[in-house]
């Protein structure tokens, strides 16, 4: 049986490359800065809807922000 995959997060890299602060991304995605912070730190796994909103706010795809690790 395959081991449980974990979620890898590239949100911080993509956000900083886009020149955005956590607060600015929070405003664009209509969530709190706390949410951005916990997603970036891998503490909180976002729903598909939030992942899509983050990707849309950063002008990228969900796959560019999140990936599965073994």
């Amino acid at each position: 049986m395959a081991g449980e995959a974990k979620l890898g997060v590239r949100l911080k890299d993509v956000r900083t490359k886009a020149g955005l602060t956590q607060a600015e991304l929070a405003n664009l995605a209509r969530v709190s800065r706390k949410t951005i912070n916990t997603v970036e730190n891998g503490v909180f796994i976002p729903s598909t809807v939030l992942a899509l909103r983050l990707a849309s706010a950063l002008g990228t795809t969900v796959e560019a922000l999140f990936f599965l690790t073994d």
Binding site: V31, T35, T38, F44, P46, V49
Partner: peptide, 10 residues
């Protein structure tokens, strides 16, 4: 709405 975002609800 923002205060009660996905993280807060979770």
């Amino acid at each position: 709405r923002v205060m009660n975002d996905e993280l807060a609800v979770a």
